[in-house]
Measured scan of single mutants.
Amino acid sequence: MISLIAALAVDRVIGMENAMPWNLPADLAWFKRNTLNKPVIMGRHTWESIGRPLPGRKNIILSSQPGTDDRVTWVKSVDEAIAACGDVPEIMVIGGGRVYEQFLPKAQKLYLTHIDAEVEGDTHFPDYEPDDWESVFSEFHDADAQNSHSYCFEILERR
């Protein structure tokens, strides 16, 4: 099963200049909980913004210009990325925008964090048809001392 995991502000903004323009430790914990011990696929820009392999996960970098870091697996196509994951129950696609666009048609599940923030962004989550998805989990949280904005975790499964 292919799943996408993303944090989205208003207007589906997911990033600005290779960074997330908010401070939500709870979302980072949600991300870790849902990706640990699963292969993660990301684009080169996302890889560069993280700066290191995510521990406890097979890191697969999709790029037309593969790098030389041998701590991760470099691939040039969506099919190659899927094959590099091996026989696993769930593959997690973690961004960025172009990689989400490439995998959305193949995805069966979306793990979304909806952030109540209007922020400037240069990267967006692809538009998706809500009628194609069923919400199977939703959990709202107010902003607090650690988390700069209110947010809602949601899991959607393709109908």
Rank of each mutant, 00 (worst) to 15 (best):
S3D: 02
S3M: 00
I5C: 01
A6W: 00
R12E: 14
I14P: 00
I14S: 01
M16L: 05
M16Q: 04
P21R: 01
P21I: 02
W22T: 01
P25T: 10
P25M: 09
A26M: 02
A26H: 06
W30V: 04
K38M: 08
I41W: 03
R44I: 04
T46S: 14
T46N: 02
S49L: 01
I50M: 13
P53W: 11
L54F: 08
R57V: 00
I60S: 03
L62Q: 04
L62T: 15
S63F: 02
S63Y: 03
Q65R: 10
P66E: 07
P66S: 12
P66L: 08
G67Y: 07
T68F: 12
T68S: 11
D69W: 12
D70L: 10
R71W: 07
T73P: 11
S77T: 14
V78P: 14
E80K: 04
A81I: 12
G86F: 10
G86W: 07
G86I: 13
V88I: 13
V88E: 08
I91S: 15
M92H: 14
V93L: 06
R98H: 15
Y100N: 02
Y100L: 02
F103T: 11
P105V: 07
K106N: 13
A107L: 03
K109C: 12
I115S: 14
D116W: 15
A117F: 00
A117S: 07
V119F: 00
V119I: 08
E120F: 14
T123V: 06
F125Y: 02
P126E: 09
P126F: 02
P126C: 14
D127A: 13
Y128I: 10
Y128S: 07
E129S: 10
E129M: 12
E129C: 10
E129W: 13
E129N: 09
P130I: 13
P130N: 11
D131T: 04
D131N: 05
W133T: 00
V136Q: 08
V136L: 08
V136I: 10
A143F: 09
D144K: 03
Q146K: 06
N147L: 02
S148E: 01
Y151F: 07
C152W: 13
F153N: 05
E154A: 15
I155Q: 06
L156V: 03
E157C: 06
R159T: 11
R159S: 13
